[in-house]
Design a protein around this nucleic acid. Structure first.
Length: 908
RNA sequence: GCCGGAGUGGCGAAAUGGCAGACGCGCCGGAUUCAAAAUCCGGUAUGGGUAAAACCAUGUGUGGGUUCGAGUCCCACCUCCGGUACCA
């Protein structure tokens, strides 16, 4: 009875088998297939395939799970990888976890669960969510920075840095065949001055310890009591911690510093050859902030004879490495303005301040220094509206003209930059100008405008900071600024009073933290008989690595700058060496940046227990061909990684000077309201939800269809709907959605394609291919939509055309593509099918529509054969009715004819 | 302040100096349906014009410039976003 009714009404039973595009079934099926068949496992060092290393910035596995921002970059790289495999490349596409860090430790503190447990839980969530999206990672290469097998080698690299000193004069040629000046060399090769050698073994060791690239030094640091750790300058924003916004105070602590500044020149110069966005290169260059100028010595004023004697000794002995105790050494980028110096400024922390302060000024200076010390970084920058300072009572002699100038202290001069002291030229420096006005210090003009039409100097209004010509500058008057700089520096150098100098805005990298959940340092402190540190250090032997975390009972912060690891028991903290020396372990831990500095190397060889990377694999895979991640890492992570890489390069462990050949930054995805996504704004989109609603292929496609990868763009849930509809149309174009099984639609036939169909196909192949090469995924998807719109209307859809199309679609929407490929009769995955080739024969249209303009305004369009010559094209245009009317009664002055593009009549 | 990047329909966007708005969303109309969903077809920058078309004018943040021709190149400015902040 039922069947009768069915026949009469044409009603078909709902069939669960698979009529429609059922993404749930398709996606889980193909994810299982890839996993079972190890489809994306990659071999190292394959000789007959060109390699391609495509890397995502690995995520911090937060407790929140995946964010829609993650799949943006990951989808882009996955498309490139899948495409590249089909183009015959051997593709390395790994994923891992940057899993050390404070949140897991905070959680441990609240819940008393070991950070490792929470970390593993978070990683499991992230891995599950990423696998849902169908990325073609080689999961056998997965790693976490928190794996002892991984951080063993992080510690090992630290020891290499510890074992290295920077020989700035060394000229050498690397394995890349490029000659460089400056090289990190083994500390054992450091020349020891005779007097140090004579002072004994301990003196030699202390001397070496000062020259290493990793040194312990007493430095003013940002201590955050709330977080229980010191923070790098970069982690402090406006005087509070970047994470959590807790107050930060400055204090002096002994901390590990990595001497990244030694590599400042190379880090800046070697950006040149990288395929990175210019804006990122510029940001790095600005961050490094290399400037060229001069160091100049000003002797504290005493008697004329003493001054003369000093100058004579300098003329004879040259410019010393360290200035004498009565000499103020300054750094300036404008040595040409030396004649305009009307005062000098020492930073309040400068070691000469006490010595220079006269009895009358004692109280004022003392008070000022105390104030400055108490000011946080925030206040010091915030209160910068009006400059403050105090006169020390002393004068120094200007080496170019013998004039005495007063010496002040002021907190607008930073102890950490240059020499911590400046010559002040209020006429030609904004800050000095402001200060001089504040304290009625004379302002002298020594630079005049170079020409009448450029910016002019008016020192009654503002400092004149432009280049120009020297005035009031003795022998240099009339010379151009650039020339005076050169010659005055040379002149000072000849007299032993100055020299050319280079400075960096970049500071050395504060490399220790006081947290539990970071890599322990493989370093011991020697103790004396009383159990006090002697200041001498010992490195763990590399065979004994990793230094594992100690067991601790609770994760409450110590409340003091004493590191968390100091809560460890004695057997972790202390040891007696073979020679009987009592040792205490270093209890600081490494910052989160450490693990991410070199993970791209370990992906090439993540199971190696003999070395951090097999040199053969390093030479095969490195450098990374494409690195995609957020612009928030534009400076720090990328600079730190490059630094470590260069140390490893100098020490012969890696063969390329740079780790990342090409860099692309994805733009942030905003909430639907155009604001940054955040819990507090309530506009967070959960990718897992999108996958459940519309499938991974739709999510991937939408993330790419939103707009250019690099651009910031708002999320639109209706847009996901749009690409889902597109995938449904693709499905119906090939599969009969009325059948109970996945069978081809009756229109899909094994026949030859028509010329029109071939033209559409090959134009699509060409456009999609070009767009993938340009990483313009949004337009590639548009082209596939156009193809689908055109082909769906065809009564007969040749199978061969659809097969090529499915291959084009597969990098973007791999699950549906695999399913369709299988429906089209293929037993194997399409992951390694050759990428379709555009046949030039079908790329040319037979005729073309050419716009005709009159005076640049579009008047009509004419259709002509595609290769119509210029004169014929013009004649055709002139013959056109609309054009004739437009040209009537006017004089044609000129005709612009671009064959195949346009005709333009210029008339009067 | 300084250094980057970006301003194009109702929205996301597209456009080697050569037809502005491809593609998608939304909306409007139609087909299918008892009805709805889904699907399919058509339309959709603005103003004028027309019964409807044709057609005309305007239009890529603002103002200028180069050019036969400018969203695209140059100059000045405005707005938004990102970076940076006394670096001598």
């Amino acid at each position: 009875m039922t069947s009768t009714v069915l026949l009469i009404t044409g009603f078909r039973p709902p069939h669960s088998a698979m009529p429609r595009y059922d993404f749930r079934r398709i996606e889980s099926r193909w994810q299982q297939y890839w996993e079972q068949h190890q489809t994306f496992r990659v071999e190292d060092c394959v000789a007959d395939k060109p390699k391609m290393y495509v890397l995502d910035m690995f995520p911090y596995p937060s407790g929140e799970g995946l964010h829609v921002g993650h799949p943006e970059g990951y989808t882009a790289t996955d498309i490139v990888c899948r495409y590249s495999r089909m183009r015959g490349r051997n593709v390395l596409h790994p994923m891992g976890w940057d899993a050390f860090g404070l949140p897991a430790e905070e959680f441990a503190r609240k819940m008393n669960v070991h950070p490792r447990i929470k970390t593993e839980e978070n990683i499991n969530t992230f891995r599950r969510q990423l696998k849902m999206l169908g990325f073609s990672y080689d999961w056998s290469r997965e790693l976490s920075t928190t794996d002892p097998d991984y951080y063993r080698w992080t510690q090992w690299i630290f020891l290499q840095i510890f074992d290295t000193w920077y020989d700035a004069e060394c000229v050498w040629t690397g394995p890349d065949g490029v000659q460089r000046r400056g090289r990190g060399r083994p500390i054992a090769e450091l020349p020891i001055p005779a007097e140090v050698a004579a002072a004994g073994q301990a003196a030699v060791r202390r001397y070496q310890d000062q020259q290493r690239l990793a040194i312990l030094s007493e430095a003013p640091v940002n201590w955050c009591p709330e977080l229980g750790t010191v923070l790098a300058n970069e982690e402090v924003v406006d005087g509070v911690s970047e994470r959590g916004g807790h107050p930060v105070v400055r204090m002096n602590l002994k901390q590990w510093m990595l001497r990244i500044t030694a590599y400042g020149d190379r880090l800046a110069d070697e950006l040149a050859d990288l395929s990175w966005p210019d804006s990122i290169k510029l940001m790095q260059r600005n961050w490094i902030g290399r400037s060229v100028g001069a160091e100049v010595d000003f002797r504290v004023a005493t008697t004329a004879q003493a001054q003369q004697a000093w100058q004579q000794s300098r003329a004879a002995g040259g410019f010393p490495v360290r200035a004498e105790s009565d000499v103020i050494r300054i750094y300036t980028t404008r040595p040409d303005t030396l004649y305009g110096v009307t005062y000098m400024v020492l930073s309040p922390e400068h070691p000469l301040v006490d010595q220079l302060t006269t009895a009358e000024q004692q109280a004022a200076v003392q008070q000022y220094r105390q104030q400055a010390a108490m000011k946080s970084e925030l206040e010091r920058t915030d209160l910068a509206k009006t400059k403050t300072g105090v006169f020390t009572g002393s004068y120094a002699i200007n080496p170019v003209n013998g004039q005495p100038v007063p010496v002040w202290i002021a907190d607008y001069v930073l102890i950490s930059y240059g020499t911590g002291a400046i010559m002040a030229v209020p006429g030609h420096d904004e800050r000095d100008y402001e200060f001089a006005c504040q304290y009625q210090i004379p302002i002298v003009q020594v630079v005049a405008a170079a020409s009448a039409d450029g910016p002019q100097a008016d020192l009654s209004v503002a400092a004149f900071c432009e280049l120009g010509v020297a005035v009031n500058s003795g022998p240099w008057d009339g010379m151009r600024t650039e020339d005076v700089k050169q010659r005055i520096t040379a002149d000072l150098a000849a007299r032993g009073l100055g020299r050319e100098a280079v400075n960096f805005r970049l500071r050395d990298w504060l490399f220790s933290r006081q947290r539990y959940w970071g890599e322990p340092f493989p370093i011991w402190h020697e103790l004396d008989a009383d159990g006090q540190p002697t200041g001498l250090l010992r490195a763990d032997p590399v065979q004994s690595l990793p230094v594992l975390h100690p067991h601790v009972e609770d994760f409450q912060p110590t409340g003091t700058p004493e590191p968390m690891l100091s809560k460890a028991t004695g057997d972790w903290l202390y040891r007696t060496a073979e020679d009987g020396v009592r040792l205490k372990r270093e209890t600081n831990s490494m910052p989160q940046w450490a693990g991410s500095c070199w993970y791209y190397l370990r992906f090439c060889d993540n199971r190696n227990s003999d070395c951090f990377i097999d040199p053969r694999k390093e030479r095969y895979w490195l450098p990374v061909d494409l690195y995609v991640g957020g612009a928030e890492h534009a400076v720090l992570h990328l600079l730190y990684s490059r630094f470590w890489h260069k140390v490893l390069f100098d020490r012969g462990y890696v063969s390329h000077p740079e780790p990342f050949r090409r860099l692309v930054n994805q733009g942030m995805i905003l909430g639907e309201n155009g604001e940054k996504m955040s819990k507090s704004r309530g506009n967070v989109v959960n990718p897992e939800q999108v996958v459940n609603d519309r499938g991974a292929d739709s999510l991937r496609l939408y993330e790419m269809f939103m707009g250019p990868l690099e651009q910031v763009k708002p999320w639109q849930t209706s847009g996901v709907e749009g690409v889902y509809r597109f995938l449904s149309r693709v499905w119906r174009m090939i599969v009969d959605d009325r059948a109970e099984q996945v069978v081809l639609d009756a229109a899909v036939q094994d026949v030859a394609a028509t010329p029109e169909q071939l033209r559409i196909l090959h134009q699509t192949i060409r456009a999609v291919t070009d767009d993938i090469e340009r990483m313009a995924f949004n337009t590639a998807i548009s082209r596939m939509m156009e193809f689908t719109n055109a082909m769906s209307g065809q009564a007969v859809r040749p199978k061969c055309v659809l097969e090529s199309f499915v291959l084009l679609l597969s990098p973007f929407a791999p699950h549906i593509a695999e399913e369709l490929w299988s429906a089209l009769g293929h037993a194997q995955t399409l992951a390694y099918e050759p990428w379709p080739q555009a046949d030039p024969q079908w790329l040319v249209e037979e005729s073309v529509e050419v716009p005709v303009q009159v005076n640049g305004k579009l008047r009509t369009r004419i259709v002509v054969p595609v290769d119509t010559a210029a004169d014929v094209l013009q004649a055709t245009a002139e013959a056109d009715e609309v054009v004739r009317r437009q040209l009537e009664g006017k004089t044609v002055v000129k005709v612009v004819v671009v064959p195949g593009r346009l005709v333009n009549f210029v008339v009067r």
